[in-house]
Amino acid sequence: MSIATGNKTLGLSPLERRLLNDFQHGLPLVPRPYAAMARRLGVSETEVIATLRRLAERGAVSRVGPVFRPNRAGVSTLAAMAVAPEDLERIAAIVSGFAEVNHNYEREHEYNLWFVVTAPDAAALREVLARIEAATGHALLELPLLEDFHIDLGFELEWT
């Protein structure tokens, strides 16, 4: 994936920036939400839709839609493993191969493999964690969310 080193390289227009920054939450629940956004922005509905499509095609927007809170639509936990560097690629592939794993990151630390496991209920989650440990031969650190302190209104993007 090519990574922009600053926002300037993406050459975002003022409308693109406002759509990205001001509409991370509060998408109107009305029959024509993009028309409602267009009225607030002083542009046309067609322009809002075309601009969102362009942002999605360029990868600046992952999607326009709901962001789910962990543990509310199924049960999930963050898990970490300490894997020998030469073995990391193999173990990571085994972990990623589990359909219940929806994020898997390599991080710089003794615990270098970090992933999220989601299951329909607590018993199913326990069972999957045990299968991952058996398949990898590695014990995992189980780090379920105990308390969420962040009020998620999106993320303030800086354009400098």
Binding site: A4, T5, L10, Q24, H25, L27, G59, V61, G65, F155
Partner: peptide, 20 residues
């Protein structure tokens, strides 16, 4: 309202926007 959805809107790709 029940917190299953925390927000509804545009989800920026931080990496693509330079937050690497």
């Amino acid at each position: 309202a029940t917190g299953v959805i925390r927000r509804l809107g545009a989800v920026p790709n931080h990496y693509r926007l330079g937050y690497t």
